[in-house]
Design a protein around this nucleic acid. Structure first.
Lengths: 350, 350
DNA sequence: CAAAGTGATGGTACCGTTACCATCGAGGTT
DNA sequence: AACCTCGATGGTAACGGTACCATCACTTTG
């Protein structure tokens, strides 16, 4: 009464539940070497003699062998995936960050796992927890504000991690970004240099998009310091679009007839304002000066061309990937926080 | 003293190379159940009694247990990653496709693995081969044109796969997209209905961006069929930008002074043309009618508003994810190819 | 009342790869 | 010549889960 193997098919020890794909063992048998040698030939070709390497490569090609990354990652306790977590995919800004990170990571053989939090820190924590289950090689997260749980989780994890978008002391490991307060202050200085004294700010969803709020804070603080003060702040709750920027401009002009200049939280709004001004016969910058933030290409093609702050989004993504790669290679990263800066592009709209 | 479980004493003769994280065994010991019961409690809670489930959940929380996805995927020969391969990340169009797919996949517990081919079929094949190493749950690829190797590889793989962006017979499994030839023909019909007889096309990088070339083909064929013929085709080799669209408009007007209407390959170019016309005093649509393709929001905020063809990008990404999910759940997908259509938005620029 | 479900739980053998060590021969060193 | 180093190759045991039974207490059924 042990196992009913007695009168069954003599050669049916057990079912198989393999994936059906060729495995490293198949390659090893075909090339007549040990499995471990195949592994080495693929991961560290220099340590295998040319003769064997060639036989192995031939076997790989003949069998169409593709290594099972799960098995490899399980055995080595690391993988080649790198999560990149952004707060929004509605915004073209993050696309360039993604592209920057992807351009470098893909070239180095890493895979980008894309996560979206929709500006929700709880969701971020959940997402990150799931993604840590992939034993990632590193991680890129947006912003410096996370739930305490997220921060602790990432610290316990201990892998290379870059917080991007805003410059500051990293909560976890490394940081690359720009100071949004400094950007706001720079725009204030620019307005004052142009002679505008009655100036204001228009932003959307400032509760979630706290980096826009930081620009406002820096802007307002610089104006206060100059003894000028901010004339108005318009907070909108819809998502930033070109259309909304136009409507906001009309509202601002109606509500603050003496205002001279408006700093919009981003270029989408600012471009919308310029386009609306054209239609409505509002003269820019005479009736109202307009500035934005991001440095989207589009701003250079409206009339007048948009004054804006150019954020190096692509470079930021690429730099983040670069810092991760350095850390993964075991190099030390002396500068744990990098201020990637910004550039105020003064054009005809102010 | 039965088993030296978490005995990390340095005197231990056996080496350990664990990741250091809590494992399912740790949870099982803590909750005093078998490992497999923990696995069930997490993956199929209904089959575990409330009592045990609660103990297990408590143990999970106390230990901060996160399942190792590699181990799970290796054992079950499937994973929850879904590669999405796009030809370009420079283009905001693909962002919305990504967002559409991501919105559904993430909600269902799948992870999006982003790949970029830069319109290179060889690179696509290599990328796909790597990604298949992750035993993906499904795959989304762009376009219907792939290398033969890619097609065979994906067929051999046999998992659910959707080819997106253009409508047609799937090479591999499923398809969702729109007919770019029909879109081109629709624009031709629109031009003719507006009374334009001398019309042309401006496109960039048509060798790679073959879907734009398809729009041209459909446009040209419809004009031929109407006995009108195409007046000019301008092929540019730079990437499409707003600035380039403006320059192209000036060139077209100089080279074809009697032309009445231009179909630009995409909205970036067309918007650039409209903005340039404003600056240069070119009257639209009187001096030149202008149309684009994509239906970017921006086109509604330039003056005159852009006539364009709206492609349902977000819906396309989401639909692709939906088809994958149906297939993964084992449901049959009766309609293997779906024409998601487009909408010609006739505004004041034509 | 025995036989046959049924539902909850456990035991064991994998999944496919790599880490760690052992082995073995060639060439260099003392 | 004996010893040592080193480079190439191989053997074995994990890595951390899940699939596939087996088991066992209870019900349901004929």
């Amino acid at each position: 009464m042990s196992k009913p193997l007695t009168d069954n098919a003599p050669t049916s020890p057990r079912r198989r539940r393999s994936s059906g794909r060729a495995t490293i063992t198949d390659v090893a048998n075909r090339a007549n070497v040990a499995r471990i040698t195949v592994s080495r030939a693929l991961n560290d070709p220099g340590t295998v003699s040319p003769d064997l390497r060639q036989r192995i490569e031939a076997a790989v090609a003949e069998l169409g062998y593709v290594p099972n990354r799960h098995a490899g990652s399980l055995a080595s306790a690391t993988s080649s995936v790198v999560p990149l977590i952004v707060p929004s995919l509605s915004n073209a800004v993050f696309l360039e960050v993604i592209r920057g990170a992807q351009s470098l990571l893909e070239a180095e053989g890493y895979e980008l796992l894309l996560g979206n939090t929709d500006y929700d820190v709880e969701r971020e924590q959940k997402l990150m927890q799931t993604l840590l289950g992939w034993s990632p090689a590193g991680a890129i997260v947006s912003g410096l504000r996370h739930s305490q749980g997220t921060i602790e989780m990432l610290r316990r994890w201990g892998g290379p991690c870059v917080e991007i978008m805003e410059y500051g002391t990293p909560n976890i490991d490394m940081n690359v970004g720009l100071s949004h307060e400094a950007a706001g202050a720079a725009m204030a200085a620019h307005f004052l240099a142009r002679g505008y004294q009655r100036v204001g700010f228009v932003g959307t969803q400032l509760d979630w998009d706290y980096r826009a709020a930081q620009r406002l804070a820096g802007f307002e603080a610089a104006l206060d310091e100059a003894g000028v003060g901010i004339t108005f702040v318009k907070r909108l709750e819809q998502a930033s679009t070109v259309g909304l920027g136009g409507r906001a401009l009309k509202a601002v002009i109606a509500e603050h007839p003496h205002a001279q200049a408006t700093f919009f939280a981003n270029d989408d709004l600012a471009v919308g304002a310029i386009l609306e001004a054209q239609r409505a016969g509002i003269r820019i910058p005479d009736d109202m000066a307009i500035a934005g933030f991001n440095g989207l290409n589009l701003g250079n093609h409206v009339s007048p061309r948009l004054t804006t702050i150019v954020s190096p989004r692509f470079r930021m993504g690429r730099r983040a990937a670069d810092m991760l790669l350095a850390r993964m290679r075991g190099e030390s990263v002396p500068q744990r926080a990098r201020n990637i800066g910004f550039r105020l592009l003064a054009q005809e709209s102010t």
